[in-house]
Amino acid sequence: MISKWLFSGAFVFELGSWGALFQEMPIGAAALLFVSAHGISSVLLAAGVWLLLPNRYKFPLPWSPLFIFSLSFFVPVLGAIGVAIAVFPALYMPRTQKEQAWDAIGVPDLPFRPQERSRDLMFQDGGLQDVLRHAPSAQKRVSALFATRRMPSKDSIPILKLALRDPADDVRLLAYSMLDRQESEINHRIQVSLQQLADATGAHKAAVHATLARWYWELAYLGLAQGSVLEHVLKQAREHVNSALAQGAGDDSHLLAARISMEMGDLEGADQHLLDAQAAGIDLEKLLPFMAEIAFSRGDYTAIAQLLRQLPEDMLTRPPFAALARYWL
């Protein structure tokens, strides 16, 4: 209703401004009367049009109404007609809106536990590392650490170690406590096995030695031991696995001994343990990746391709061997 009165007033003042030009009066007075009446008309027209505009076109102030006023004031007659032609059809005959096929939503928070778990988490830790490196919110980085609780230790520990360098105290303390918990659990199992070893005899003693070798190896394999501690852990693992083999432990101990020797840089010993494992009945396809790794460490790159070709075809199509097959074969 207000807009109609504003438009009516704008029309009347616009007619009055043009009527002043045809009156018998001095040019200066006629020009002043024309400009005044035309200016009032432009103000009323701009106000009326501005009230009818959708909210998204009304702001920012004062530029929206000032633009309409400028069109009407600086382009007499044609400006007002142009505003009317541009605005009124759009107001009363709006374009039909197409159905929106998608909705914009906010970025969801990182869950404390995986919503969907895959059997193979080998390639799912990169996203959490990116969160720890780039997320500005400490709470999101803490959430990333909580998400590692459902991951294998081999994949989660590098993420926790990365969090130890985080600038936020909460993130560092949480990462340290989670690492310490895993290390404490393994050390506790080692202490229990050492107590059992004191009273063990015969085959049971060989099994306890094998268990100790596995737990010491676990500390090294997971990266929980470094430097001189790593050397000590590997030596303990080798001593116990050799004792287990000497007392008739199972064929898996040969493979464990080979992996320990590889980690210590004893490639000849690792090669011999793999041969012993094969003689003990371990499937060759289980040993071939380690043989290829030894060949790589020796620089015998021709042997790598020969060893990988002996793996089953379906095995070469699955990670991590798919990438190796593409490169070496």
Rank of each mutant, 00 (worst) to 15 (best):
M1E: 15
S3Y: 12
L15K: 01
G19H: 02
A20T: 14
A31E: 08
L32R: 01
L33W: 10
L33E: 06
L33F: 08
A37Q: 10
G39T: 14
I40Q: 00
L44A: 04
A46W: 11
L53Q: 04
R56N: 13
R56H: 13
P60C: 11
P62L: 13
S64W: 05
L66A: 14
I68E: 03
S70R: 03
S70W: 06
F73P: 00
L78I: 12
V83G: 00
V83T: 05
V87F: 11
F88V: 15
A90P: 04
M93L: 12
P94E: 10
T96S: 06
Q97N: 05
Q97V: 09
W102E: 12
I105Q: 05
D109N: 05
R117Y: 11
F123V: 07
G126S: 07
R133D: 10
S143R: 04
A144K: 00
F146V: 07
T148N: 01
D155H: 11
S156K: 01
D169I: 14
A175L: 10
E183S: 05
S184H: 07
E185D: 09
H188L: 13
Q191A: 12
L194Y: 12
D199I: 15
T201Q: 15
T201C: 06
G202I: 14
Y216Q: 03
G223L: 08
G223D: 12
G223K: 01
Q226S: 15
G227Q: 09
L230Q: 08
L230M: 07
K235M: 13
K235R: 13
Q236C: 12
H240N: 11
H240D: 13
V241F: 03
N242G: 10
S243A: 13
A246P: 02
Q247T: 09
A257Y: 03
S261H: 09
G265T: 15
G269S: 06
Q272R: 09
H273S: 13
A277Y: 00
A279M: 07
A280V: 06
E285P: 10
F290K: 02
M291N: 07
M291G: 07
A292N: 04
A292P: 00
E293H: 03
I294Q: 02
D300L: 02
Y301M: 10
T302E: 14
R309P: 11
Q310D: 13
L311S: 04
P312T: 06
M315V: 07
M315C: 01
L316W: 01
R318H: 01
R318K: 09
P320K: 00
A323D: 09
A325H: 09
W328E: 02
W328G: 00
L329D: 05
